[in-house]
C-alpha cells in the first residue's frame, strides 16, 4: 500500500467517506484534519457534530466524537467544556444547525464567550434533505423550496460572522474562510483552536463550501459559485483576531 494523502487524524476505516463527489464540506473536514495534525491535539480534543450533511462525519476522525441532534451541538459542547475545561472542544455544524434551528445557541454561546471552537459550513442550502432554502441562500438562487429563487421577502442572506463580531468580547476569534483556499483556511482553523487552547474564549470559523449535487453544477461551475458569487456576498477574512 502506498502512503496515503489523507490527514493523519482521519479515520482510515471510514474512508472513502460518504460525502458526495466534489463536496466542499468534505474538503473543509480534510483541512480540519490537517489542522488537528499540525496542532497535535488528536488525543486532547473532542469533535462534536450536528445533523445535516455534517452527520456523515461522525466517524471522520480518529478523535473522540459525539454526533448530536440538529442544532444542539453547541450546547452539548459547552456542557462538555464546562465539565472538562482542559479538553479542546471542536463543534461542527451546518448553516441550518447554526443559523436556523440552533441559532439561539450560537448567539448565546458567543455572547457568553464560551471557550469552544465552532466551525460552520455555509453551502447556501440545506443539502442533506436535498437542497432547500437556507438562511445563507443567495438572492435569486433557486432551491427546492424557493423554486423561483430566493426573494427579498424571504430575508437577506444571513451573515453569521458579521453578527457574531458585533456581540462577542474582544477575546473572541471570528473568521470566514473558503474550503477551496487550503492554506488560508488551515491558518484560520489553527488560530481559532489556539484561541481556545490559550484560554481567550469563543472562536468561530464559517467556511464557504461547494455543494455540486444540490447546486446542479459541474466542477468549474461549483468553484465559480463558491469563489465568486458567494464570496461577493460573504467576504472572506478575519473579522476578529485577538492573536494579531
Amino acid at each position: 500500500m502506498p502512503e496515503t494523502a489523507l490527514p493523519k487524524s482521519w479515520n482510515k476505516e471510514s474512508k472513502p467517506h460518504k460525502f458526495c463527489p466534489g463536496c466542499g464540506q468534505a474538503l473543509a473536514l480534510k483541512i480540519l484534519g490537517q489542522a488537528i495534525d499540525e496542532l497535535d491535539i488528536q488525543k486532547k480534543m473532542i469533535y462534536a457534530t450536528d445533523i445535516g450533511c455534517s452527520l456523515l462525519s461522525w466517524s471522520m476522525f480518529n478523535v473522540d466524537t459525539i454526533q448530536t441532534h440538529h442544532g444542539r451541538t453547541l450546547p452539548l459542547s459547552v456542557g462538555f467544556k464546562k465539565a472538562k475545561p482542559e479538553a479542546i472542544v471542536v463543534s461542527f455544524t451546518g448553516d441550518g444547525g447554526g443559523y436556523a434551528i440552533g441559532a439561539q445557541h450560537l448567539l448565546n454561546t458567543a455572547m457568553r464567550n464560551d471557550p469552544i471552537t465552532v466551525i460552520l459550513i455555509n453551502n447556501a442550502n440545506y443539502a442533506m434533505t436535498g437542497g432547500q432554502l437556507a438562511p445563507t441562500t443567495l438572492l435569486n438562487q433557486k432551491t427546492t423550496t424557493a423554486p423561483k429563487g430566493r426573494e427579498l421577502a424571504q430575508g437577506k442572506p444571513f451573515k453569521g460572522p458579521e453578527m457574531l463580531a458585533q456581540i462577542t468580547s474582544e477575546d473572541a476569534h471570528i473568521a470566514r474562510g473558503i474550503s477551496t483556499n487550503y492554506q488560508q483556511l488551515l491558518e484560520m482553523y489553527k488560530k481559532a483552536i489556539s484561541n481556545q487552547i490559550e484560554g481567550r474564549g469563543f472562536s468561530f470559523v464559517e467556511v464557504i463550501a461547494m455543494c455540486p449535487v444540490n447546486w446542479h453544477t459541474d466542477a468549474q461551475q461549483s468553484l465559480d459559485f463558491a469563489e465568486i458569487e458567494m464570496a461577493k456576498i460573504y467576504p472572506i477574512g478575519e473579522l476578529k483576531c485577538p492573536q494579531k
Partner: peptide
C-alpha cells in the same frame, strides 16, 4: 482541492 484525499 481534492475532498477525498485521492491525489498525492
Amino acid at each position: 482541492i481534492c475532498p477525498d484525499g485521492a491525489i498525492k
